[in-house]
Design a protein around this nucleic acid. Structure first.
Length: 310
DNA sequence: CAAGTGCCTTTATC
DNA sequence: AGATAAAGGCACT
């Protein structure tokens, strides 16, 4: 094939992808782009002017919400619907999780927040890096990681960096990872990346497993405890019954749901900062039983509400 | 501005 | 089993 022909073909494809598209949002399927990207479930989005810029896979794209429509460029409609969870009937989910006045208030406050379907590999590494860090620091760490080990791509006049592959991170030196701001988590990331490469781990296979089984699998990775596993299951593998319990959810439980536990238990967990696995499981199980199969949705609303209230 | 506290916790050890 | 400590470093007060 002559070289000229190939170049022309590439250019044609590129042009086609750049075409701006719009998805009309149905009113029974509420959506709020800003809240969805700001609530702390994802760390690599940036708002520049009207547009949100994101990187997924090897591509950067941008999107914005205009009343009843979601506009996007450099990405296809099917991906957008899948990634932003637009195919789920959010109103129905609300009716299932709205068990009391408090959760109703949280839902009202962030009406249209959707759980994303992120890439499981990126999600796993992100949450290993996120342990015991604040969100700003998590963002910075993940940017450092992408700058050092990802590919630079250019879109719309800006530079972006793809999320590093498992192969790339498996080859990284622990010191290089430390330099990205990972601290003691560096060895967990290095080990996890090696394990994923070595056994050719297929994250998508976890989708077919029941929540408990899928969680057990994730717990095999170093740096992954119950909380991280629950986050990965919820934010990337469609396990909406997962109910991650972090310090904020613990506070919510102490303040608003204490009556669902024994006085003894409440006393115990309010007097110390970290949770044992047994204590975690108790609160996790409460969340799943009380809110039902979309407990993870309830969790995200409660989490964001508690964090932003003050 | 210094110093203290807290962060979407996990792991190691006793 | 259950308690306790240690582990980057940044952000916020």
């Amino acid at each position: 094939m002559p070289k000229i022909g190939r170049v022309n073909k590439k250019r044609l494809v590129f042009k086609k992808l750049k075409i701006q598209m719009k998805t009309r949002l149905n009113s029974s399927y509420p959506f709020n782009l800003d809240v969805t990207l700001c609530c702390g479930q994802t760390f690599r989005w940036d708002k520049r002017g009207e547009w949100w810029y994101g990187i997924v896979g090897q591509k950067a794209f941008k999107t914005r919400q205009i009343s009843d429509g979601l506009e996007f460029e450099n990405i296809d409609t099917d991906f957008v619907k899948d990634y932003f969870g637009l195919n789920y009937n959010l109103s129905k989910i609300y009716s299932k999780i709205s068990k009391d006045e408090y959760i109703k208030r949280a839902v009202d406050a962030f009406y249209g927040l959707r759980i994303l379907r992120q890439n499981p590999w990126e999600c796993l590494i992100s949450y290993i890096c996120a342990t015991y860090k604040n969100i700003k620091a998590i963002r910075q760490t993940l940017l450092n990681l992408a700058k050092k080990f990802g590919d630079k791509i250019r879109f719309d006049g800006y530079d972006f960096y793809t999320f590093p592959t498992a192969e790339k991170l498996a080859k990284a030196k622990v010191e290089e990872l430390v330099d990205c701001g990972l601290g003691y988590r560096a060895k967990y990331v290095a080990e996890t990346a090696k394990m994923v490469c070595k056994c050719g781990f297929k994250f998508e296979s976890l989708r077919r497993l029941a929540y408990e089984k899928a969680r057990e699998e994730l717990l095999n990775f170093p740096g992954v405890g119950l909380k991280v596993a629950d986050c990965v299951l919820l934010f990337s593998l469609g396990k909406f019954e997962a109910f991650p319990v972090d310090v904020w959810i613990k506070r919510v439980i102490l303040r608003y749901y204490a009556k669902h536990f024994s006085d003894n238990f409440i006393q115990k967990i309010s007097n110390k900062q970290s949770l044992s696995n047994a204590e975690y499981e108790k609160m996790n199980l409460f969340g799943r039983k009380y809110f039902g199969k979309y407990a993870g949705y309830a969790q995200e609303y409660l989490y964001h509400y508690e964090r932003t209230k003050s």
